[in-house]
Design a protein around this nucleic acid. Sequence first.
DNA 1: CTAAAAAACTAACGTTCGTTAGCTTTTGTG
DNA 2: CACAAAAGCTAACGAACGTTAGTTTTTTAG
Lengths: 195, 195
Amino acid sequence: MASNSKKKVSKRDVIIKEAALLFKEKGYGSASMRDLAERVGVEAASIYSHIKSKDEILEEICFRIAGEYVSHISKIEDEKSSYTDKVKAIINLHIRLMVEDAASVAVTNNDWKSLPEPKLSIFKTLRKGYEARFAKLIEEGIAKKEFAPMNVSVAMFTILSSIRWVELWYNPDRNITEKELEKDITNLLLKGLKK
Amino acid sequence: MASNSKKKVSKRDVIIKEAALLFKEKGYGSASMRDLAERVGVEAASIYSHIKSKDEILEEICFRIAGEYVSHISKIEDEKSSYTDKVKAIINLHIRLMVEDAASVAVTNNDWKSLPEPKLSIFKTLRKGYEARFAKLIEEGIAKKEFAPMNVSVAMFTILSSIRWVELWYNPDRNITEKELEKDITNLLLKGLKK
DNA sequence: CTAAAAAACTAACGTTCGTTAGCTTTTGTG
DNA sequence: CACAAAAGCTAACGAACGTTAGTTTTTTAG
């Protein structure tokens, strides 16, 4: 019988998804291809029918997530809204990505340092660019008196990293919805920013 | 007699300090004993004159940091001060530890998952206990109307993880002092908490 | 149904890993 | 100075690692 009805999820995607879970659990350096193979239900060597190397998996995870951030911040910059709403949109973006794809976000946060050159340098540049654009929004918000004067880097990094805990804590069974989570975190962080 | 706890910095301490830097840089699983030996200026096998295993180094780092947190929160609980000041004291504790021993704190945050059982379970219990005590302070602060009503877990984890970025960013050469850093972060987070 | 393409398997490669054994050198103490 | 303890060295072990080669099975397409 036909095993695929429509657009099927490729085995490659299954491998990368499972790898994200594994890397999150054990850390990239401590996770082996044989661990991964077992989870996928296949011999270790068979994985190489779908991917070129272990490094390639990490690259794919990190750059997909980085791409999500970068593509969304462009939209946010272009919106005709207050800086408060722009920052709110960034916070919501980070929470949504974390909730929707916790494993990949966690791996990107924790294991990007294991990217091999030259991908490591490219990733760092991407991240630095994203941070610079976020910082600029905060800076302009301060200039327009929407936010209180403060060290822009401190504000930005505090906001960015304050969302990381969600990875360790959130799971859909908890009696708090994504919406409530967003509301509470956004409120907590925005009050601190406001003038 | 062993010159362990006397005046001089033992080689064992040097090894563990260097290991913290190495583990922070590459991640525990990706760092090898030969990497570590090279940094210490010794052959890999010689390290085993001072420590029992690679795992033991990770344990020592994680439990020393965990101990710092636990011992300080007892003092903070006992102080006769407002809940605002208690939370402020916890934030300052986290910032100070991060600035004073960035590498060990980073390793504890990133690599505790690699602790071997039964140490892993013990560590988790320690951390859960610490979090429960911190949460209780926030809860009481809300009850006493010092803080606005909100989800206690969300507030606690947001505060706890918001300080982690300092590891990636802070270095003594930056033109911001630890005091300024403390002031800005504390202000940002406390305003969000306040009623 | 057939044949090619894709994906799985077994086996093994060369490396690197954490660690041990056994010997030599350095250091601290009386 | 004597000499034991501490700390270093070289060599090597077995295990695990990422990965490749070669073969067989499964899936896909005409």
